[in-house]
Design a binder for these strands. Structure first.
Lengths: 208, 208, 208, 208
DNA sequence: AATGAATGAGCTTTCATTCAT
DNA sequence: GATGAATGAAAGCTCATTCAT
């Protein structure tokens, strides 16, 4: 059991992150103020700076949080996948689902990040590249295995990511109609890379 | 008569737009300052306000400029296309090419716009919807004609747009290796919507 | 006959003064812009500076214009007045009437001037002192003649001026019900200085 | 607990109000800058905005402060007055004395207010109307009681206010010779409304 | 004389960050 | 650790005034 003090600590940090996520998502990076974040976390403004070195770093941490989850989930889902294309498909599924579970973070990563500062954009780019690398590796492997026609794996990975991003943004706008569309997105992407024969797996197991 | 020579007039306006495009592209909407834009256009800050009512409107004008070009070019290229899929393909080509011709504007529209103010985002959304509508119409028509399998046209149009956006952003990052990749992007998108039979037209005629 | 050129000259000056009076009256000294004054006078902004050295001087000229008229009219009306109290009463009448004939200038002198710059306020004070002096002289003379009880002539003159000012401002607010109230104002002031016996003259002759 | 000592709190607020009063009085509404007010209060410019939402509101608060005092004092002094004319006279006394005690605020209310923004002028007008209403009520009552001749009570109240205003402005200019003149002002006003029989009370009790 | 585009100082207001308590 | 008052740099925008044409 953790002593209440430590709990308090963790509670504060988490409360601030949650408040920050909400405020950034609603107001955007620039319109969000530390005062508002602190207010929602029920702490004083100065307290914010006990947990984060700056507004920018706090935002960066939120981005990282989402991508950590995403990458972990992606990797988990890929385990035990027979074909490369199934791995690819499951990656897509994982990304779509993770983002949807954290609407506020998703909105930050997908919509607000580009309005933030240069350093944050670079940070986001760096984080994204992990995911891109995974996708590109799969695609290259699929080409090797003769499952899909040859092509620039890196570019294809980018295009897949772009389409997913748009699907998520679209979903964000009209939040609610989630899962049904996923199948179509997945089919779109599998076809896009040339994997027309590959069946879109029925999603049998829930995420959590 | 005191006209500062039509040349002068146009020159100032254009110099300011060019300066604004450069600064917005490099620094982002919020980091960009009127002082910097004015400095690059070799005018005083007050002069900026002789040509634009506000920073926001100036940015909006830049967005509109690019999209006007894009939509005009898209419509021009679609004329005389036999098949719907060819129309779709040419639309994609036109978009990719237009954006590439105005790298600074492209960066603004693709990367910075979401960091701007609410009114600007809405404006951008409105403009984008024209393009989306065009794509969705084509897709619906292609389904009707049996050229591609049935599916949600609006969603597919979104996904196409998202992939294109990413392709352009990708290109932006490593500006230079432009045209060669286009063919792959086009094939990706045609396949994505299920149009595997459709050949990717050789691009014979230049844009201008 | 004046040559058209000279007419043009005078016309410009007058047009600018009229425009300035209107704009100052409507918007107040600070909200009034040279651009707006020039626009209403159908000239370019630069032209304003051919006729006035500055915004401040232009405003000062308007103040002076009204007071010149007022003092001239006051002096005219006082001629041939038998009693000092009649002179005083006619002065009051003249002031009330002059101000009412130039509503825009009145509004400037009475309401806007104090919001202007320090130099303008001093200028206004200087101009007002002429009128005050006239009133004070009359009052002193009336005391000498035993028509009214002794008292501080300068202070009384001030109080008379203050009451008149308020009467005019009041009238400005609900412009229209002019002359009828004058009799009451005049009676108020005559009584105020102790001249209860003096009859309030019927106003027989028009102003112009 | 981090209260900066209630003293500190009040001190800041009061220091800023005092500084604002001084600067507005000396420079006028428009010429006054937040920077100067802050400088005189020995705080940074941003601190001003911790205590006032805007320059305009700060000015409005100063106006309200003076009029609150004035109306409170007027009402206090009127209690226990036998005759209506005594009530009227005491009202005048109260107004004159209150304004004299706060020379800086008086200067703001009497001289600078009309140069401020439209909203502030309306606010001032609204506040003044309370005082006017009081005076007008007294006058109407005095007429009813046969103490003074009939006449337009609202107009007379205005004239009384105007004369008082000028007396105060006059006193402002040559601050020092205050109280002695009051008796003359009060006599002037009593006579003005036709109350010649009424004696001007000896002022026996001080204000504070 | 007339023009009106250009100037740039100067204003109010915001907010990330600090630090004495 | 926690607080929140205080800071002050920085930005968008206005407009009286100038001057090349």
């Amino acid at each position: 059991m953790t002593r209440p003090a430590k709990e308090g600590q963790t509670g504060r940090q988490e409360a601030l992150l949650a408040a920050a996520a909400a405020v950034f998502a609603q107001q955007g990076y620039h319109a969000a103020t530390i005062a508002e974040i602190a207010r929602r976390a029920h702490v004083a403004t100065g307290t914010f700076y006990l947990y984060f070195p700056s507004k920018e770093q706090c935002f960066g941490q939120l981005i990282a949080t989402l991508y950590d989850e995403v990458l972990r989930e992606v990797r988990r889902r890929r385990r035990g996948a027979g074909s490369v294309l199934v791995k690819l498909d499951r990656s897509v599924q994982a990304v779509l689902q993770c983002f949807r579970q954290r609407q506020d973070l998703a909105s930050i990563v997908l919509l607000q990040a580009s309005g933030a500062t240069k350093p944050l954009q670079e940070r986001l780019t760096a984080i994204e590249s992990d995911l891109l690398h995974l996708l590109a590796t799969d695609l290259a492997e699929a080409v090797q295995a003769g499952l899909i026609p040859p092509g620039d794996a890196a570019l294809r990975a980018r295009l897949v990511l772009g389409a997913m991003r748009e699907a998520l943004v679209y979903g964000l706008a009209q939040s609610g109609q989630s899962a049904p569309a996923d199948a179509e997105v997945r089919r779109f992407l599998l076809w896009a890379v040339g994997g027309q024969a590959a069946p879109v797996e029925e999603e049998s197991s829930a995420t959590s």
